[in-house]
Design a protein around this nucleic acid. Sequence first.
DNA 1: ATCATTGCAAAAGATTTGCAAGGTC
DNA 2: GACCTTGCAAATCTTTTGCAATGAT
Lengths: 171, 171
Amino acid sequence: MNQDFSLGSVEVALTPQERFEEFLQSRGKRNTQERKLLVTHIFSHHDHFDANQLIDELTVRKDTDKAFGRVSRPTVYRTLNELVEAGLLRKFELDGRAVYEHDYGYPEHDHLHCTKCNRLFEFQSEELLALRDAVAREQRFRVTGHRLIISGVCDECASAKRRMKRKVDLI
Amino acid sequence: MNQDFSLGSVEVALTPQERFEEFLQSRGKRNTQERKLLVTHIFSHHDHFDANQLIDELTVRKDTDKAFGRVSRPTVYRTLNELVEAGLLRKFELDGRAVYEHDYGYPEHDHLHCTKCNRLFEFQSEELLALRDAVAREQRFRVTGHRLIISGVCDECASAKRRMKRKVDLI
DNA sequence: ATCATTGCAAAAGATTTGCAAGGTC
DNA sequence: GACCTTGCAAATCTTTTGCAATGAT
């Protein structure tokens, strides 16, 4: 699940690490090795990911000797929740599993989801925000956010005969 | 999770029961008591629901003598999947659990989700469809559908001091 | 009679939690 | 040293599945 075109990034004063540090301190929490590693890893590249990907990439595997991993499954989940609370990550559901993406310093956007290759493509629309707010106003509804996912088949997949689901690639 | 205003319904030739019967026959499946009971129950009132609600309403409880229920948990799930396949129900995810709503004979719409009382409010927007298709066209994306959920707080909850989550009410 | 369906129990997948051992301030 | 965190194991929650008994055609 990579992004396939970039949206302009937003200027921010602090790095994700610094921002998280700040959040942790305000909560009387500690910035541990594990949390640092996760933040560094997550913000080293911009894409969509789920807990399993992090676990695969950062967890010690007993079955192999590639014990380069260093964060346990519960800590991955615990830290992801903290990162969402801290406003660094945004979480949403896709096919019953949680998917995360960068939020801090990244503009608001929505997604096109290709059901063939399982990739997510981003787009921004001012009109959508206006429409959302208009609908809400009509119903006297206080908006805090929204989630729009357009599903279908991307150009690449529509051209290709067949293509594996990314989900499968990753396991 | 009730609807709070109605959308015009669409004219259809067959009742949900008949439509499902047709679907089952085309698949060499049988229209059993359990399936009939579920369809009758589900289409007796228009609202959003999840598997647990059906199970609570239709499953035999061993701990009480109110054994008015008649459909087991696995059958509820199996039938819900069939109803989605048959086009009678539409399924989406909310807070990690599957939510269903009537699809057959019911117009396409989107939702406002109140995070206080957990209710879903429906709305229709032609503009949204146009916007969706415009975005897709721009990215050469073949749209098959979309899901928009606007979250926030409904008027009622914004006025009230405090309100229980419906989820809790139902358990 | 044949073959689908049901209910039970158990499995599976994702995420969370209790708790003792270890790390951070 | 006080207290937060981690990792492990186990629990939870939602949904699915194997299988023997039951039901529909």
